[in-house]
Every structure is written in C-alpha cells, then in structure tokens.
C-alpha cells in the first residue's frame, strides 16, 4: 500500500484535489442559492411550506436514482454530480438557515428596530450572529454529505476519490480500495472536526459566553 502510494502519489493527490474541488464548489453554490431562497421566503411567506416539502421530497430520493435521473439532462460527468449534490445540500441548508433565523427571539429583533437599527443593521449585527450556530451545523452536514455523494457520483463518471475506490474494487486492487477508504474517511473526519469547532465558537458567541 505504501509502495502504491509512493509510486502513484501524484495521481492520488490529483483525485483528492478534484474531489475537494467538487465538494467545495457544490457546497458554496448551494449555500448561495439557499440564502437567496431564504431571502425570497422571507418576503413571500406562502413559499415556506412549498419549498420545505419540495426539498423533503428530493431528500428522500436515493442518490443513485437522482444521479441517473439527471444524466439525460446534464449528461455523464462532473456536471450532473454537482447538480445532484447541490440539490441534496439545498435540503439541509435551506432548512437549517430557516430554522436558524426562526430561532432568533422575536423580542430581540423588535427591540433592535425599536431603538433605531435599520433593517440591514438588524440583520448583520443581531439576526445573523444569533442564527449562526444552526447555520454552521447545516454547512457541516452539507460538507459531510457532499464528500460521500461525490464518491458515489463516480457511477456517472464524475472524478474524485470514488474513481480510485471503484477502480480498485473492479480490478480487485485492494491497495487502491484501502487508500480510497482512508482518504475519504479522513476527509469526512476533518470536515466534521473543523466545523464542530466553528459551531461551538458560534454558539458561545450567540449565547454570550465569550
């Protein structure tokens, strides 16, 4: 295994970077879309249940089914992988961002307006910091979920660590499988750790403990 790694070091690293790139890109894209959606729902309240129900439905579709469903539209490859990942991320992110803002005590917002903060000032200095812990939880889940989704996306020809894993399985090259497994696990572990720390920090900040 070590032999394989020293020999194909650049190949593994390339796949890892590709994997990270897809994950980062889809989480970033879904975060932006989710924020826009939440802003829209804030204006048009009737959209709230519609959006939530739609995403709950999407979320219950098995990932492989969604991947294959997308192929006729966006073809084989990274594009379909990103679209599917974004759809799953949107479920988690929209829900968490919404419940993050819902969790902010209405009296606090009212007091903010009442003493003369503008809409933006209230949003940036009151609502956002107080909603942040739950939003960060959403981002953490989105990252963890995306890492595994992108592994599966190899099935429709997307790049990343999945290529190494599935290739190893097909050719019964256990070195590849093992390296793939370890790298993916470490990736998930690191994302979880980093965001748990940020989450803790945000929570302490929101509740006035630091």
């Amino acid at each position: 295994m070590i032999d394989y790694l020293t020999k194909h070091y650049d190949k593994v690293l390339g796949l890892l970077l590709e994997h990270l790139e897809i994950v980062l890109f889809s989480v970033a894209l879904s975060f932006v879309i989710a924020m826009l959606l939440v802003a829209l729902i804030h204006r048009l309240k009737f959209l709230y249940p519609i959006v939530i129900n739609f995403f709950n439905m999407c979320f219950s579709i098995p990932s492989l089914v969604l991947f294959t469903f997308l192929v006729p539209f966006s073809g084989l490859g990274t594009k379909s992988a990103i679209i599917a990942t974004v759809i799953y991320n949107l479920c988690v992110l929209t829900r968490n961002i919404l419940s993050g803002f819902d969790s902010v005590d209405h009296a606090v917002i009212e007091a903010a307006y009442g003493i003369g903060l503008t809409r933006w000032q209230t949003f940036l200095s009151v609502e956002l910091p107080l909603a942040l812990p739950i939003i960060i939880t959403g981002i953490k889940l989105a990252f963890i979920m995306s890492v595994s989704l992108v592994v599966l996306a190899t099935a429709i020809g997307a790049g990343g660590m999945g290529a190494l894993l599935f290739d190893g399985m097909r050719t019964q090259n256990w070195n590849k499988v093992l390296i793939g497994m370890i790298v993916v696990t470490v990736m998930v572990f690191l994302f979880n750790m980093i965001f748990s720390l940020i989450e803790k920090w945000a929570l302490r900040r929101a509740t006035g403990q630091c």
Binding site: D105, A107, V108, I109, E110, A111, A112, Y113, G114, I115, G116, L117, T118, V126, P129, L130, R205, A206, T207, G208
Partner: peptide
C-alpha cells in the same frame, strides 16, 4: 424612521437584550 427612533427610548415587555452582546 431609524433616525426618529434613535431619539426615542423604547423598552419592551420582554426586554429584548442582545444575548450576544455584553
């Protein structure tokens, strides 16, 4: 509205202090 409200002190029943601020 914001400038006007800054001239007026407003205390609500539920207090509404900012929990993340000292």
């Amino acid at each position: 509205p914001s400038i006007y409200r800054r001239k007026i002190g407003y205390v609500i029943q539920q207090v509404g202090l900012f929990p993340h601020r000292t």
